[in-house]
Design a protein around this nucleic acid. Structure first.
Lengths: 168, 168
DNA sequence: TATTGTTATACTCTATAACTATA
DNA sequence: TATAGTTATAGAGTATAACAATA
């Protein structure tokens, strides 16, 4: 099934051959997606990119990206967690979490404390500065969330959260 | 991310201090996500990762990844498109599309044809082999889509596609 | 001057493997 | 032996900038 919807609006245009060599301007969304329209993954990926871009923009002044925010939030809510615990909970590779924490520790938002019960592991805590900063990040993240709501609608956003509740 | 997250029962456990130094085993999902549960972006990202992993696994035998599939599908449905047109339609950087097409052209799935109307640009077409291969890829992608349906439910998948219809 | 395809660089993220110090 | 943290590498993917050929 070819989904070649010929809509008309002011989108980026391209040259298209018509008949024997003539060219006319066509809209980018005249290009049919064909089978892609039936794939949830395609729409989900495009949506995820939009969300992350808005998040990064909204928290641009404080220079916090989605993954950093998720790490800070989980440590803030569960002080003393090990790196393995955070990595597993958020689905981050433990090797990658090392670098994320290096950066957050340099910024004095997080501290690694030697665990007394297992000397291989670190207990992760927010610094005082980290607590204050996270409160601000959360306010900005809530602002971002309102952008999402404005984009897809309040009811749709809530339905989406319900549908995807298992993926947390 | 955890490619083998579909494991049953064997949830990763961690040590947690209780009272004055004692430790008990806790499940990773005892760790609270706090503010993250209210963020659509978090669930969408986790879901998107799950979908891509299933897609990559399901099309593993033919070695086709989601982006390659989207490029092939759009070229197949719109023969003669320029690289710029494909890049803009799918939200891929044109510099990145160059490498994607290099790979697909080496595999004899796609061919670049010099455009006669604009000698700067290439008209993209599937090869005969590419047409045959894409038909197979689409069958496998449909199988993947049934996995998605099994994961979140038929009605939820359809609702999701409706909610995200603008992000295509 | 602007655009198409290309090359190049840098940074993020994912996926591994191996090393160390502990357990 | 196994695990926690670390280091290293390779490959996707994203974001830019610059260049040659062409419009």
């Amino acid at each position: 099934m070819t989904a070649s919807a010929a809509r008309v609006d002011a989108r980026p245009s391209l040259r298209k051959r018509v008949g024997n060599g003539a060219a006319r301007r066509i809209d980018a969304d005249e290009i049919g997606l064909d089978a892609l329209v039936g794939h949830a993954g395609y729409a989900v990926r495009r949506f995820q990119i939009w969300i992350f871009q808005d998040f990064i923009r909204t928290l641009g002044d404080v220079d916090i990206r989605p993954t950093q925010y998720s790490v800070l939030t989980v440590i803030g809510a569960n002080p003393g967690l090990s790196q393995m615990a955070v990595a597993k909970r958020l689905g981050i590779e433990r090797a990658r979490l090392v670098h994320l924490l290096d950066s957050l520790e340099q910024r004095k938002l997080v501290k690694r404390v030697k665990s007394k019960t297992d000397r291989r592991s670190h207990a992760l805590h927010l610094t005082g500065q980290g607590e204050t900063a996270l409160a601000k990040f959360k306010r900005l993240a809530a602002e971002h969330e309102r952008h999402v709501e404005a984009k897809i609608g309040k009811a749709n956003r809530e339905r989406l959260l319900q549908i995807l509740a298992d993926f947390t």
